[in-house]
Design a protein around this nucleic acid. Structure first.
Lengths: 206, 206, 206, 206
DNA sequence: GATGAATGAGCCTTCATTCAT
DNA sequence: GATGAATGAAGGCTCATTCAT
C-alpha cells in the first residue's frame, strides 16, 4: 500500500485543500459576516463536505485563526516584496509601500471584508490580536523608519511615530469606508485620499 | 424582611427599561463580541429575565439594531452639542468637534468596543449601514464645511473632502487601534496623533 | 363601597364579558387552529388584554373546555328547541331535527371549524370527550327513538341504532367536508346529501 | 461487552430512518395530539436524538406534512391494491373497496387517531388540504363510478354522487366515532353500520 | 482522504401565568 | 375590573463536533 507511483504528493494535495478551504472561508466571511458564518457555509463554498473542513482544521475556532494568519502572512509578503523591488530612496520606498496596499490582487472586496470582520471581533478575542500583533509591529516599524528618513530629508516638524500612524490609519480607514459606508466612494478616490495625506505630511517629497 | 431599602423597582417604565437593556447590550458586546453575544448574557447584565428583553425588543436582531441607533444618536447629539457651544470661527468649531470626540463621556471603552463590533459586521448587514448612513453623512458634511472654511482662510492646497476624510479616519482609526492592537498606546497619545494630523493639514491654524 | 346604585349588575357584565371571550375563542380557533391558538390571539380578537382573559377563565385549558361546553350547550339547546316546536309525528320530528342542524345561525363557518378542531383533539384529550359525552348520548338517544318510530311506521328492515348512526354521521360528515376538503361543495349540497340519506333510509316517509 | 446481538444499527439508510421517524410521529400524534406534539416526543418514540429528526425533515412543519402525505399514500395504495384484486362486477368492486377500509393493517388505532388529528387542523392549514386533495378526488371519483354502475344495474333512484358521499361519510364517521366518543362501539359494530348503509342504498345487491 | 449520519449543547423565541399598579 | 410588565418553562431550531463507513 502507499506504493510510490507518479502522482502528486500528498503534502501538496493537503496544502492545496487547506488553501481552498481558507479561500472559501474568506468568501464566506465576506458574504455572511463572522457572527453568522457556519462550517456548512464554508464547506458549501469549497464544495466539499463539512466533515472534511474539520478534518483539516480540527475546529471552527482554529479555522478562523488560521484564516486570519493566512491573510496576515499574505499582507506582509505583499508589502515586503514591494519594498524589495523599490529603489533605495525613502520616497521611493514610501511610494512602493503605499502602492502595494492599493494595486495588489490582495486588496479584493472579499479580503477587505474579512479584515474588517476580524477587526470587529479582535477587541473581544485576544487570539486575533496575537496573530496580527507581531506582523503589525514589523509593518509599523518599517513605516516609521521610512517616515523618519523622509522627515530627516525634508526637515518636517512632525514626530515620525505620528506620521506613520496617520498614514496607516488613513490607508486602513479608507478600506473600512469601502466596506461600511452606505454609499462608499471609489477605490481610486481612496488612493487619492492617501496620496493627499502623503503630500500633506511630506510636502517637499510628493 | 421586606425592609425599606433603596433598590430598583421591580417594574420600570417602558423607556427606562429599554435604556437599561441597551446599556447592558453595549457592555455585553464589549465583553463578548457580536458573534458570541447571547440574549441570556444581555439579560444577566441587566439583571432581568431574558423574556423581558424580548418583550421590549421583539428579537435579538432588533435589539442590536436599536442599540446601534442609540449609539449613533448619542454620538450625533454629542458633537452637535459641542458645535453649538463653540465659537463662530472655523478653527474654534474644528477644535470643538475634535475635542468632543475625545473628551466626552460617550467615548468609554465599552462604547468604542461596541462601535468596532458593529463596523466589523456592517459589511454583511446592510441594516447597520442604513442606521448609520444618514447620521454619518451629516457629520461628514459638517466636517467638510469646516475644513473648507479653514482652507479658504489658510489658502491650503488640499481638497476639503480629502482633508475632512483624513481627519475622520485618523479619529476613528485611533479608536480602532485602542480596541484591536495587542499593545495599544494611551488615549492621550491618540489625541496627540489627531492633533498632529490637524496641525499638518492646517499648519497656520493649529 | 359597593353601594347599590342603578347600574347594570356585575353578574351580567361578568357573563357578557365571558361570552365575548368565548366568541373570540371560537373565531380564533377557526382562524389559527387549536394547535397554534394563543391567549394573546384570543385577547386581541376580544379587544381586551390577555391578562383579563385569564382573570375570567383561570387557564387556557379551562378556556378551551368552557368554549367546547358552550358550543355543546348551544347545539343541544338548538335541536331541543326545534323538537319542541315540531309536530307530534315521527316524520315531523325527524325533519325538524335535521333542519335544525342546517338552518340555524349556529352552523356558521367559525363554529363548524371549532367543532372540527375539537374533534381532532378529542382522541388525545379525555376531557373533551367528557364534555360532549352526556349531551351526545342525549342526542343519539333522541335520534334513535325517532328512527325507531319511523321504522315501526314504515316497517323498514334496518336496526334503528344503525339508522340513527348513519344519519348522524352523514350530517357531521358533511360539516367536516365543508371544512376540510380542498374544493368543498355548497352547504345546500350538504343538505341535499342528508335528505338523500333520509329518503333512502325511510323511503316511504321522505 | 460488545456482544454480537441483533440490534438496530446506529446508522440507518436515509429512507429507513425517515420511515422510522414517520411511524414514531404517527404514534406520538395518537398519544398526545397535534397540539401538544413536540419533536422531543417524536425523537424519544424513535429512540434517536431530536437533532436527527430535523436533520431528516428540516422542520416540524415539514415532518407533519410528510407524515400526512405518507398516510395518504398508504391509504390510496391500500384501496387501489384491493380494487386490483377484486372481481370485475360493480358489487365485487364495492365490497372490495369497503372491506379494504376495515380489514387492512393500516386501520390501526394510531393511524386513525392521526387521521382525525389532521382533519381537525386541516381547516386552518391549507397545506394539509392540498396534500389530501388530489388523492381524495381520485378516491371519490372511483367510488362514484362504482355507485353509478350499481345504480344502473339496480335502477336505484339516487344520485351516484350522493350515494358515494353517504358511503364515504359513514366510513369516515365511524372512524371518528371510534376516536372521539366517550364510550365508543366496537369496530365490528362500525363495519356493520357501513354494511347497513350499503344494503340500504343498494338493497338488491347487498 | 472523504462522506454524511448522528449527537447534544445551547441558542432564540413563544407563551401561559403571575402580579404590581 | 383591567392593564401590561415580568417571569421562566419549554419548544423549535442551529450547528460544532464526533464517528461509522
Amino acid at each position: 500500500m502507499d506504493d510510490i507511483v507518479d502522482r502528486p504528493p500528498r503534502t501538496l494535495s493537503r496544502d492545496a485543500r487547506r488553501q481552498q478551504v481558507i479561500e472559501a472561508t474568506i468568501a464566506t466571511i465576506a458574504a455572511r459576516g463572522l457572527a453568522r458564518l457556519t462550517l456548512t457555509d464554508v464547506a458549501r463554498a469549497a464544495t466539499i463536505s463539512h466533515g472534511l473542513v474539520l478534518f483539516h482544521f480540527q475546529s471552527k475556532e482554529n479555522l478562523l485563526a488560521e484564516t486570519l494568519a493566512y491573510l496576515a502572512d499574505e499582507y506582509q509578503a505583499n508589502w515586503q516584496a514591494a519594498l524589495a523591488k523599490a529603489g533605495p530612496g525613502a520616497a521611493d520606498r514610501m511610494r512602493a509601500l503605499i502602492e502595494a496596499d492599493f494595486r495588489s490582487q490582495i486588496t479584493t472586496q472579499d479580503r477587505l471584508a474579512a479584515w474588517c470582520a476580524f477587526w470587529g471581533e479582535a477587541q473581544s478575542r485576544p487570539v486575533y490580536q496575537e496573530i496580527c500583533g507581531e506582523r503589525d509591529a514589523t509593518y509599523v516599524r518599517q513605516l516609521e523608519e521610512i517616515c523618519a528618513a523622509l522627515i530627516r530629508e525634508g526637515d518636517y516638524g512632525i514626530d515620525p511615530v505620528h506620521a506613520a500612524r496617520i498614514l496607516r490609519l488613513v490607508v486602513e480607514g479608507t478600506w473600512l469606508d469601502l466596506m461600511t459606508l452606505e454609499h462608499p466612494y471609489s477605490s481610486e478616490e481612496a488612493r487619492l485620499t492617501v496620496l493627499a495625506a502623503m503630500s500633506t505630511l511630506f510636502s517637499k517629497h510628493f
